[in-house]
Amino acid sequence: MMWKSIVYKEWLKIRWFLIGYTLLGILGIGYLFLTVKHGFAFSGGKNIWNSILFMGHQFFSPLKYVPLLGGLTIAIAQYFPETVNKRIKLTFHLPLRENKALLMMHAFGAVSLLLSFLVFFGMFTGFSLLYFPVQMVTDSIISIFPWFLAGFSAYFLVALIVLEPAWKFRLFYSLVGGFFLTIYLNSPVTGAYDPANSGLFVLTAFLSIALLFSAYRFRKGEM
């Protein structure tokens, strides 16, 4: 019963941000493929394909910071209210193991973000397959995959930073987190992230429990 209440509380916090972000993302991807359609109509399909295959044109590049923005938005919407008057303390007083309650909140946020990303990813893949063959779509997916991982990492890192009680350490985490995010966001040729994606996925998974560290420090009363 308790977990349902936690999920409901988290939903109340993030719902408008999640819905707003997802709608904006859908509109963004719609616009992206409108430009592709326009390009096909005005420049011709062969020239669009040629510019993507041999001239380094990346039609998906406007998406680069969209997942990152989502991770930041959901994390701030979910965790910033918890720091006002240290409300997170209330969660720690629930008749649940502290980490379990926290991980439940975190998993809810991450799954919400995942659903939003899946919508984008599905739309992107579906529309791409209308205009491009599998090889080109696969290379595009290899290129955008780290951007989505960056979205999750940003979500996990902001949770870590926001829950940290001491300002000095917030700054330290921000420094490490900010530089860490850059490894997802290099601007190489299409498909270049292929050898790195599995490693980046593991690193992102590592970060998923990062907030336990700052929450622990919070509970222990670090100032």
Binding site: N99, L160, V176, F179, F180, I183, L203, F206, L207, I209, A210, L211, L212, F213, Y216
Partner: peptide, 21 residues
């Protein structure tokens, strides 16, 4: 669990610093 999260963070920080510095 908190300890694991700390070591994972230390690992991420080492990797990041080994790239940036």
């Amino acid at each position: 669990m908190e300890k694991i999260s700390r070591y994972l963070l230390v690992f991420i920080a080492i990797l990041t610093l080994a790239i940036i510095l």
